[in-house]
Simulated assay, not measured.
Amino acid sequence: MTLLSLPDDLRGTFKAPLGPVYTDTERLLSDAGDPIVAVGDVVTYHLRVAGRDPNVAVIDGKTKREAVGEEIAAVLDGDAPRIEVENAPATLSEGLFSALVDALARDEPTVIHVTGEEDLATVPAVVAAPEGASVVYGQPDEGMVLVDVTAASKREARDLLERMDGDADAALDLLARR
């Protein structure tokens, strides 16, 4: 069930990075907190190749709306437990919110595999993750964005969720169950 959808007037807001952009995975990892939530197939790939399996990886098998290549797919097909969810493009589903909370509560790295699109998952991930964590996502054709989860970044993410169309109160209640 879709809880939130992206209104046209917010689309530009989501194009600006929510943190610094990195092109060097090792440098990003040296600056990252713990746990790490990775949103995107290519970001997850780079973290794993660098030897750091994200605590939570949110993937959909695509990059720039196209299927990822075989090399990336092979690295993504690991042994980590998977949670399967549906999430339509430009939306955030109840299943995605619940999966984020569930995955963050687990002791082992967990993959959330999205049928549909995972692009907006960064925002609820920042709200759901504990302070001190990091959320990493891809900025197309630029690199990886590192969002430090702080009280301020959580407020900013909550504000973005509240500005989306739909039931923001229900969405925030789901994320508060962590």
Rank of each mutant, 00 (worst) to 15 (best):
D53Q: 13
M144E: 11
T63F: 13
V39L: 01
L47K: 08
G19T: 09
S93H: 05
G116T: 08
L96S: 11
V135K: 00
L161N: 10
D102S: 11
L6W: 00
A152W: 00
V114A: 05
T150K: 02
A50I: 14
A32E: 04
V43F: 01
A32Q: 00
D24C: 13
L47R: 07
D41P: 06
R82H: 03
A105D: 15
L96T: 09
D173E: 15
V123D: 00
A74W: 08
V68S: 06
G132A: 03
P54F: 05
E156A: 15
D9V: 05
P140G: 02
Y45S: 01
G166Q: 01
V68D: 01
P7N: 00
E26W: 10
T2K: 11
E117T: 02
E108T: 14
V101L: 09
D167I: 02
D167P: 01
T63K: 13
Y22T: 04
A99D: 04
R65F: 11
P89F: 02
R155E: 14
D9F: 09
R48M: 15
S93P: 12
K154P: 01
P35M: 07
P109M: 12
V145I: 06
T91L: 03
K154A: 08
F97S: 11
V49G: 08
P54I: 07
N87K: 01
H46R: 15
V136R: 00
L10T: 02
V85G: 09
V114S: 03
K62N: 04
G166N: 04
A152F: 03
V114N: 06
L10M: 10
T23Q: 13
L161D: 03
L104D: 04
R27D: 11
T13A: 14
D165A: 14
L100D: 02
D167V: 02
E26R: 15
P130T: 05
L174N: 03
R158A: 10
V101N: 07
L4I: 08
T13D: 09
L29A: 09
D8N: 12
N87E: 03
L174G: 01
T150V: 03
E156P: 01
P89A: 08
A157L: 05
G138L: 09
E84M: 15
G116N: 05
V75R: 13
V42F: 13
L161H: 00
S5W: 06
T150L: 03
E131M: 08
P7E: 00
V149G: 04
G143I: 02
A151I: 00
D34N: 09
E162A: 03
E131I: 10
S30E: 15
